[in-house]
Simulated scan of single mutants.
Amino acid sequence: MDMQMRHLEIYRRQGEFAAWPANYGLWSWGDEIVVVFARGKLGAKGELHELDRDYPFVPWQARSLDGGLTWMGEPFRGHVPGGHSLSADEHLNADLKIRPHLSVRDDLCVLDEPMDFLDPETIIMCARTDVEGDAVSWFYVSRDRCLTWQGPYRFTGLHLPISARTDVVPLGREHALFMLSTSKEGGAEGRVFCARTGDGGRSFVLQGFVGPEPEGYSIMPASTALSGGAILTLTRCMGKGGGKGWIEAFTSDDEGKTWTGKGCIVGDTGSNGNPPALARIEDRLLLVYGYRDPPFGIRMRMSFDDGQTWGAEKVIRSDGGTADLGYPRIAECGEGSLLAVYYFNDGDREERYLAASILTPARDQEGGEDGAASSQSQFCAMPKRNV
């Protein structure tokens, strides 16, 4: 399928490290779109990230009212328990981490009004302390398109460490699956499990683990319900001792109790790997991920048969300066168009910033999609517009 492509900048400030939308969320309501991410500062270069561990990573939002073409920054108006940083403990020195200052009893609320998972105006964002050990997680609810956030709410009924990113599969008005990560035995990061709520998020039960405990890790799920009722989950994988990452697929036919491995669908996401972003748009599934080896950039694959087979890998962009990029979220941004939001950079000592690509299927002269099933198509680059 030929695609028209447009790259944009969402949020960029000199000296800042703005990143990781996959750890937070992206939501769209027609032309209105909101993304949540983290803002910190550049600092000394580590193994991968070039960030200041003595400065908080505060949650921030960007909002578009024109389908992703222009963006406005705004504060995250939710309560951050135990500190200023949110879902970034692993990048901070001890005194800035949430975990030492968090009181689960005092800081986390019990949800009293059930969520309606079928209401497009009700959205959920999951958050966490760390990614290993005795990590604690919670979730927020917004019913006014992220202008305000209620919570943080406990995952009542789940008695295991939780490293949550936002991945929710609605099954009914008060019935949904939350795909979450937890530590392995011994405390190392991590593996994916499925939790179910049948009362609108007031309580949860553990449904099942997604695959056996890995030698390295299998984390950061991206999930969707398939047309036949099964659940498809993609996970970010890494072998023991690091190296190159990959993406695996799993399906469940019993609402997350048992899972069947479908194999590796992206064999190489580069050194340190990158999480998947998954969306269903019209009759196709779209997978977007960062690639952390030269040429650094953002890539995608597409499936027209509910994930049984995937088309050839496509390069969305390959102009990244270093491996410190990716962590995408994707959403529909108009009829048949896809918005991929990710963090990006232009090189060492350059700010990390939020960027986006709008992907639109090319149309033939009769108005139909041109070559919808072709796996050999290329992207057509549109002029870059900085926002």
Rank of each mutant, 00 (worst) to 15 (best):
A127Y: 04
A195Y: 08
F379S: 05
R13P: 00
G67I: 03
G46T: 12
R12T: 06
G133F: 02
F57H: 13
S103R: 06
P114T: 12
A323T: 02
F17V: 03
A195M: 13
V131M: 12
T122P: 00
A88R: 15
G290N: 02
S87D: 12
R63G: 02
G242S: 08
V315L: 09
H91N: 13
L278F: 09
R363E: 03
D253C: 09
L206N: 13
R191M: 15
L42F: 00
D31E: 15
G30S: 08
V266R: 13
E350A: 10
D95W: 10
V34N: 05
S64M: 10
P114N: 09
C194T: 08
F178T: 04
V210D: 05
S183D: 10
K262A: 02
E32R: 15
G367S: 07
I358W: 02
K314M: 15
R53F: 02
I124N: 01
G336C: 01
D346F: 06
A94S: 13
L177D: 00
T197E: 00
I162V: 15
M3P: 00
I124M: 15
L354D: 03
W310P: 03
W246L: 11
L226K: 07
G46M: 11
K262N: 14
W310N: 11
E313R: 13
Y291G: 04
D134G: 04
I162P: 05
N93S: 12
S103V: 08
E90T: 14
G243A: 11
G78N: 04
A135E: 09
G347H: 07
F17M: 09
D283I: 07
D107F: 11
D370S: 12
D106T: 08
I231V: 15
K257H: 11
G245N: 05
S374M: 11
R173F: 06
H49Q: 09
G242R: 13
I162W: 08
D130K: 04
C126N: 14
V104M: 13
M238N: 02
L111P: 04
V36Y: 01
P276A: 11
E113T: 15
D54L: 10
R99N: 03
N386D: 07
P328Q: 05
Q14W: 01
L42A: 01
R143L: 04
G320Q: 03
E132D: 13
V110W: 08
E282F: 05
F304K: 08
R363M: 06
D346S: 07
T148Y: 06
R143I: 04
Y289D: 00
T70G: 04
G67F: 03
Q207L: 10
K257T: 14
A94C: 05
E313Y: 04
V136K: 05
R196F: 02
P214L: 03
